[in-house]
Design a protein around this nucleic acid. Structure first.
Ligand code: FES
Ligand code: FES
Lengths: 145, 145
DNA sequence: TTAAATAAGGATGTTTTTGTCTTTTATTGT
DNA sequence: ACAATAAAAGACAAAAACATCCTTATTTAA
């Protein structure tokens, strides 16, 4: 519905990495995928994208893995979504018109634009750290057992 | 974002057909696709689905085409969406967990569930006729010229 | 300095979505 | 009846999304 599989895995992975960021050890792709129930190689590709976009940090070699800096933890969810789905995703027309505009709106525009704005607010107002904390405190989960 | 192409075309086509439902003549697939800028054969398939689900009516042969009964015009948008995307689409987890649940929620659940509810309300509270009227009165458009 | 570990990158494969083309079936005006 | 018309249906094709596998580059511990 809202996100592609790519985006779902990307967010889940980033949140998991964030949730491990107190530890000194970096988090390996294997561990990540086990804990978010995502396909190993596919997820690795997504993390490459996020790393290139500086939303994650990584280190190769023994004891390497993924981690996040304090700066990265403060990034809002929307940064992840835009890195994966593209910047425009939150301004497109809900009915697929070439552009979303106030002057030539689709019949859904009035209501949809406000909902789209809610989504934008949700994603801007929540940091990766916020999500990680809800994991750490047992309030939320990244997979169902 | 919200809908698949299939769903977008399906809604646009249905709304266009509805907007022509005052006329006595039925509306042909060619005319529909010109007016909503959608691919001819693909859209025809989508209309088949909607017709099988009794959300549209159709007639073959000379002077045939698509049309909607008064009953069908009163259907809410959500009926179209569910016919095309499936009934479950509006209750799935936003982060792709196997199930969306209050007891094992994903970190997005709190905010997402409320947005998803807004979407549901938007789609339940607006009939196909409502959308068609906004077209007819020039307040909305199904393609950009 | 070497072996092991681990992410990055590239090639390839599968599935789903999106789209076209052709044939069939039903309807209607003549 | 017949020809024309239009939707239904089925086969096929292209593109995108989803996923795997293999090789390469980098790092570190021993
Ligand atoms: S024009 Fe369709 S959502 Fe704005
Ligand atoms: S559990 Fe993810 S949206 Fe409800």
């Amino acid at each position: 519905m809202l996100f592609s599989k790519t985006c779902e895995y990307g967010i889940r992975a980033a949140v998991y990495i964030a949730s491990q960021s107190d530890k000194t050890e970096k988090t390996g792709i294997e561990e990540i995928c086990e804990n978010i129930e995502a396909p190993r190689h596919f997820t690795a590709k997504i993390l490459q994208i996020l790393t290139r976009n500086h939303l994650l940090s990584s280190q190769k070699g023994v004891n390497g893995g993924f981690y996040m800096t304090a700066e990265q933890l403060k990034q809002p969810m929307i940064a992840l979504v835009e890195a994966i789905e593209g910047k425009e995703v939150l301004s497109k027309c809900g009915l697929g018109l070439k552009a979303c505009s106030e002057t030539e709106p689709c019949p859904l525009h009035n209501k949809y634009a406000s909902i789209r704005n809610n989504i934008k607010q949700m994603l801007s107002g929540m940091t990766i750290k916020d999500m990680a904390v809800s994991l750490q405190t047992g309030k939320a989960f990244l997979k169902i057992d």
